[in-house]
């Protein structure tokens, strides 16, 4: 037995830890808001120069060319604007940066748009300066394989690697499932920075299955025939991993948000959004 230095202050005894847990579950009275790091106070250059907008006959929306669905989202935003009897005004965010912190969208919205399309509805996933509309479509994370012998995730042998788009809701659900299995029954999960990198690893044979956002796989297959040989497989034994996608607004835009929610509900109900998805053969659903 090594003679360990005992660190006495908080760590040592089980009773002390139990006390910690007991105390921690009570909301601290002095804390008005519990904010993760990405709830960081947003900042935009010259932010104090942006006042109330005068032209209220337009719906200014942003789409980001880095999003696989940006053209589909544009069509949906146009339909939302028309539904509200507003003139749609599109701003396309152009950037080559792979990832941006969500706080950067603050400056984009201050300058260019009332709503920004393309955000997943994730519980507790947003800072309090953002509000999210109801979803205009629902899409899945999908498991993709190159080997035609793998028709379902259940066909994959234990210890074989899955390249999962790292930190996504789907990745978390996969890891939770695997953690509940005996070690010998698990697949190995390789976190991949992006859906593109996960699909690239699949093409290169470094993983047997890739877990990616279906719209990302859709755009890759539209743009490059090298992806034609890849197939979406049945997620069983996992259930389908579906997320709604909506638009974000600055949280003080409560009236506009209510109006957009009503418009989205109407456009889903009358089949307008479903028709747009069909037109693009986009892998999502917009049932009423």
């Amino acid at each position: 037995m090594p003679a360990f230095l005992e660190l006495p202050r908080l760590a040592g005894s089980t009773p002390a830890l139990a006390l910690f847990v007991m105390v921690s579950v009570s909301p601290p009275v002095t804390v008005p808001a519990q904010e993760p790091e990405f709830y960081d106070r947003p900042y935009a250059e010259n932010q104090w120069t942006y006042g109330r907008r005068m032209d209220e006959s337009q719906l200014r929306y942003c789409v980001d060319r880095r999003d696989p669905d940006w053209e589909v989202a544009s069509a949906i935003a146009d339909a939302i604007a028309l539904g509200l009897l507003l003139e749609p005004q599109r701003y396309v965010v152009e950037s080559n940066i792979i990832f941006d912190d969500i706080t950067k969208v603050y400056a984009v919205m201050l300058e260019h748009c009332d709503i920004h399309m393309g955000f997943k509805l994730i519980p507790q996933g947003y800072p309090d300066w953002i509000t999210v509309t109801r979803p205009y479509y629902d899409a899945e994370y999908v498991f993709v394989a190159a080997d035609l012998g793998i028709q379902a995730l259940a066909d994959l042998a234990p210890s074989r690697p899955i390249g999962a788009t790292m930190g996504t809701s789907a990745h978390l659900r996969l890891v939770s499932y695997l953690s509940a299995l005996p070690a010998d029954d698990r697949w190995v999960t390789y976190p991949m920075g992006t859906s593109d990198l996960a699909l690239q690893s699949l093409l290169e044979g470094k993983v047997d299955v890739a877990l990616v956002w279906a719209p990302n796989f859709w755009i890759k297959q539209r743009e490059d025939p090298v992806y034609d040989g890849l197939n979406v497989i049945d997620p069983a034994p996992l259930p389908p991993i579906v997320l709604g996608v909506g638009a974000i607004l600055l949280s003080n835009e409560t009236f506009l948000r209510a109006a957009i929610d009503e418009a989205i509900a109407a456009l889903r109900a009358d089949g307008t959004i479903a028709d747009i998805l069909d037109e693009y053969e986009f892998p999502a659903r917009a049932a009423p």
């Binding site: 993760p36 950037s95 969500i102 994730i122």
Partner: peptide, 13 residues
């Protein structure tokens, strides 16, 4: 928390 509220705008935290 998951990182994927947006495809390029991530939670980061």
């Amino acid at each position: 928390n998951p990182l994927d509220p947006g495809e390029v705008y991530t939670g980061g935290g």
